[in-house]
Write a protein that binds this DNA or RNA. Structure first.
Lengths: 211, 211
DNA sequence: CGAAAATGTGGACATCGTACACAAGTCCAG
DNA sequence: CTGGACTTGTGTACGATGTCCACATTTTCG
């Protein structure tokens, strides 16, 4: 199974950076088959190390999964940030709204492109506390922060009345997240990315009008 | 662990209704600790039977989990249906809208009251196909159907323009589901049911205005 | 009534998480 | 330097789980 090429009989006794190697293996496992597949023994196997070695870096399996989850959340944020704002076709451009749309689209696209990772990102019960809190320890911006500041900008530019602002994340995020879940393994599974994009746009328009 | 009172040394060789006994045990396990806790061996233990007996009724562990999931979905639907419509305080009553609000409230209340079961309901990848399809084999009405017909009624009574109707479930459900997820183990965890209700109401108002 | 189908039992195996004791490098105080 | 302490990986082991196979018992029905 594990070719010696993968586990190259490292010459040094120490691995060098086992912790990150395990996380990376875990990420791969999550990408391949979702969070329940990130399994200690297989991760150590891929890192070319004996199972127990993992315990020098993680308290238990859940700790590894948490770390994987954080990586996944970071990648999600990157996907959101790097989604291009496309030009609004007919509607007059509302400043800042395109940004939010892009974030949402990136969110959905990531969920569709990396369902395993996406599920891993939200698989651990206590991770969202970190997520909604401030920064991940890696220093990356979180998805939640991205949304928050985009909404702030919307208030700034006068599009969104300030009294509507408080808690708006808690309208937008659930809606998008729910849609993402439906896209991954709900009744909308198998929708093409373009269709998903359209659905997201409709959803956002609907919410925007409401707010 | 398992008291003989629970597994009363059945006199007959056959169990009688092992299949349902296993499902029920599975439901209990899910209620106690979520879907990952519905484990074949423990279920059979609770049913007072040897592990392998389960394989006469379920192809594998996932099949049992699917059955549990269906029960959970059915209970969710019941919770939605039996949620009373409370009187709108100030707003003029929009016919049919109170119904939808009640359904949504029931959804959120169930998620908060039975997080383990709720997670189990949505834990299996292929269940939602059944859910969104027609009826569960048990003949109960599904949550999705409840929402659909409520929306139909809204069109009927002229509140919702017919051209806005198509796919409206896919706006409403994701939003509510996402909120439920946030309430269970997201940043909104620990919100009191009353506050959750308020949040749900705000969310729905926001969406309703948009549609 | 007797054979076939249904259902539960017993035993076995691979895999997993994890604990404990030990070994091999690494590093720093003297 | 150098020797002990610390870190990190190894070996062995145990209990739990999912699942397979052969067997026993009970029910059912031709």
């Amino acid at each position: 199974m594990v070719s010696p090429a993968e586990a190259p009989k490292r010459s040094t006794y120490r691995h060098g950076d086992l912790r990150n190697a395990l996380i990376e293996a875990g990420v791969d496992l999550a990408r391949e088959s979702g969070p329940e597949a990130v399994v200690l023994r297989e991760a150590t196997r891929r890192a070319g190390v004996v199972p127990n070695a993992a315990y020098r870096h993680f308290a238990d399996r859940r700790a590894l999964l948490r770390a994987v989850s954080q990586v996944a959340l970071a990648r999600l944020a990157v996907a959101m940030e790097s989604e291009p704002e496309d030009e609004p076709a007919g509607v007059p451009a509302v400043p800042g709204y395109g940004r939010i749309l892009a974030l949402v689209t990136g969110y959905l696209r990531f969920a569709q492109a990396e369902p395993g990772l996406f599920r891993a990102a939200f698989s651990t019960t206590d991770m969202v506390g970190t997520e909604a809190g401030s920064s991940t320890e890696a220093g990356g911006v979180t998805a939640f922060q991205l949304l928050s500041t985009a909404l702030d900008d919307l208030v700034e530019s006068g599009v969104l009345p300030a009294e509507r602002r408080p808690g708006a994340e808690y309208f937008v995020w659930p809606a998008v997240h729910g849609l993402a879940v439906l896209l991954i393994d709900g009744p909308l599974r198998g929708l093409l990315p373009a269709q998903a994009h359209a659905a997201g746009q409709r959803l956002m328009d609907s919410i925007a009008r409401g707010i």
